[in-house]
Design a protein around this nucleic acid. Structure first.
Lengths: 131, 131
DNA sequence: TCATTTCATCATGAGGATATGATCTTTGGA
DNA sequence: TCCAAAGATCATATCCTCATGATGAAATGA
């Protein structure tokens, strides 16, 4: 369902959601904790930072932290950076045979299912996932 | 949602569902119709044949046809050969942090959404998609 | 100012998905 | 019997994801 990278991003964000608010965690510790190569994780964290999900500070005492409370970060904010989570942007057939305008027989049922998936990602927050 | 290959397989199967029952279509015609390279499609059709979704006959007058009526072929029968469509075999986190036994707060909501996706693939037939 | 810490970036490669083209095998009919 | 049609298979190439290791850039504190 989710790409490897998106899963790592989510797990990293969840880890940050579990520390005291405002406290920073450096890449080395996150990498240890998630059992990931440091520089690979670094690139993922960088993208999360660029997207405004995380804040980073360099130099001694630096590290990463959530840019806002975990209650206000949707799972979609994280995984949407890496995976294309969109409601039936295409029908099952890659929109060749079927569209909203000329729907196939199963189109509406699929739209409904697809929309539920997106809604889950949009409406579930890091705080909820972190328990 | 679906891999490229799974989409092609589905479109090929739908094409076969749209011809007269029992009538065969050869790779060349399918490839033209779907705008795909012949041998690439051939490999996909071969997998569908091995899986018992299609029947193939060689030699002059040969080609492919559905192994049973389109009403009795689920979308899952086709795309399941190429993509791993399983209900929350893993939680969102790659089952590291969360499982059925020790669910996270969003686990059950996710299970429900995930199961709906699988149910759609399992319960929708080629006949329904082909209109 | 300089060394250390930490994030940011670059270069490289393995492996799978996605193709593409050439060749082999089977089959039916002339 | 042999040829042509059609599926089956093999060899190769391209691109993207996933990953690793080395290096660069910024910030802090002594």
């Amino acid at each position: 369902m989710l790409s490897q990278t998106a899963q790592y991003a989510l797990r990293a964000a969840l880890h940050l959601a579990s520390v005291k608010p405002g406290e920073v965690t450096d890449v080395a510790e996150l990498a240890r904790s998630l059992n990931l190569p440091r520089n690979y994780l670094s690139k993922i964290l960088y993208q999360l930072t660029q997207a405004g999900v995380l804040l980073s500070t360099r130099g001694k005492g630096g590290g990463f932290r959530l840019a806002r409370p975990a209650e206000r970060i949707a799972v979609l904010d994280v995984v949407g950076l890496f995976d294309d989570i969109q409601p039936r942007r295409q029908c099952l057939l890659g929109r060749v045979a079927c569209s909203d305008a000329k729907p196939c027989a199963a189109h509406h049922r699929w739209s409904e299912v697809s929309e539920r998936v997106v809604a889950f990602f949009r409406e579930t927050t890091l705080a909820e996932l972190a328990q």
